[in-house]
Amino acid sequence: MMGRVLGTKKLLGWLAVFCSTFFFYFATVVIRLAEGEVDIDVSYFAFFRFILGFIVVSIIMLISRQPVRPRRYHFLLGRMLANTAAVYCFYKAASLGSVAEANILNMTYPLFVACASWFLFKSQRDWVVAALVALAFVGVWLVLNPGGDFSVNGQSIWGLASGMLAAAAIIYLNLCRIDHDSNTILFVLFGLGSIVMYTFFHNYIFWPNGKEFYYLMLCGAPGVIGQYLITFGFRFVTAVEGSVISSSRIMLAALLGPIIIGEPSLALLGWCGGFCIFVANVGLAMRKK
């Protein structure tokens, strides 16, 4: 019976992480849709996501009468700083080029998580998982470089930076989960994240009109929902498992990009890369540790 309960929680964790990919992808779609409609810098989109999340988590904790119980402050601060920087770099990459490429570059973080997990967590030194993550990274490379003419540009730098920072945020999230509940983690993340974003980008933040508020909310709400789902999901999955499950966002971006915002479809090698990622995700989900 206990094993069945644990299996159900594991499945819920996988499902929550997978659903978060839909919301994170849609947030970047809104950034592109807002171009030409409103004049909003990506830093404002990121700030609004954090301030909206802080309001939501504060209301939830107030209604449930749940106090904030921070313990290991350095883990919470590390999670907040890494996640805040990753969100900004991710949104910046989406604004400079294709949404699909921004999501693909952001999803390089499973490789960085796997490498870090190998050194930090002895229990996760699993060669099968390492092989699956390697396969997923090969898939990412094929999707990103189908013509063999990969070049480093502004979007690539911002996208890869978001991937590395997201890896650090995921590692810190797993460490935070040991001593903290989801609401405490999110309260610190959203609250201090808002302060950090306002401190560095206050010149781009203003009181929005109706249309601007519409796009800010349309981008911020999915980001907050995705943050809740991934925080909940990582309570029941390892950093490596959750990261590779999240990489399904690559296929989501490739499939929906041409339909929603008219981006070019993937080439043949790109689809081969997507298949590699899919196989890695399925293999990891079936892997029992």
Rank of each mutant, 00 (worst) to 15 (best):
L186M: 00
F187M: 12
V188Y: 09
V188T: 09
V188S: 09
L189M: 01
F190S: 04
G191A: 09
G193Y: 02
G193M: 10
G193D: 03
V196A: 05
M197D: 05
M197I: 04
M197T: 05
T199R: 06
F200T: 06
F200A: 03
F201Q: 01
F201N: 05
F201Y: 05
H202D: 07
H202V: 03
H202G: 03
H202N: 12
H202Q: 10
N203W: 13
N203L: 12
N203C: 00
Y204A: 14
Y204V: 12
I205T: 00
W207G: 03
W207K: 05
W207V: 13
P208K: 02
P208D: 06
N209P: 03
N209S: 11
N209K: 03
G210A: 07
K211Q: 15
K211G: 04
K211V: 15
E212K: 07
E212P: 01
E212D: 06
E212C: 07
F213N: 12
Y215E: 02
L216P: 00
L216N: 02
L218Q: 10
P222E: 10
P222K: 02
G223K: 00
G223V: 04
V224C: 13
V224Q: 12
I225V: 06
I225F: 08
I225T: 10
G226A: 04
G226D: 02
Q227C: 09
Q227V: 02
Y228N: 10
L229P: 04
L229M: 09
L229H: 03
I230K: 08
I230C: 07
F232A: 07
G233Y: 07
F234R: 04
F234Q: 14
F234G: 05
F236T: 09
F236S: 14
T238R: 07
A239M: 13
A239Q: 09
A239C: 13
V240G: 07
V240A: 15
E241H: 15
G242V: 13
S243V: 14
V244N: 09
V244F: 06
S246L: 07
S248P: 07
M251P: 09
M251Q: 11
M251F: 13
L252Y: 14
L255P: 04
G257Y: 01
G257E: 12
P258T: 01
I259D: 09
I259P: 00
I260Y: 06
I260A: 10
I261N: 08
G262H: 04
G262A: 04
E263K: 03
E263S: 06
P264A: 00
P264R: 01
S265C: 11
S265M: 15
L266H: 08
L266G: 04
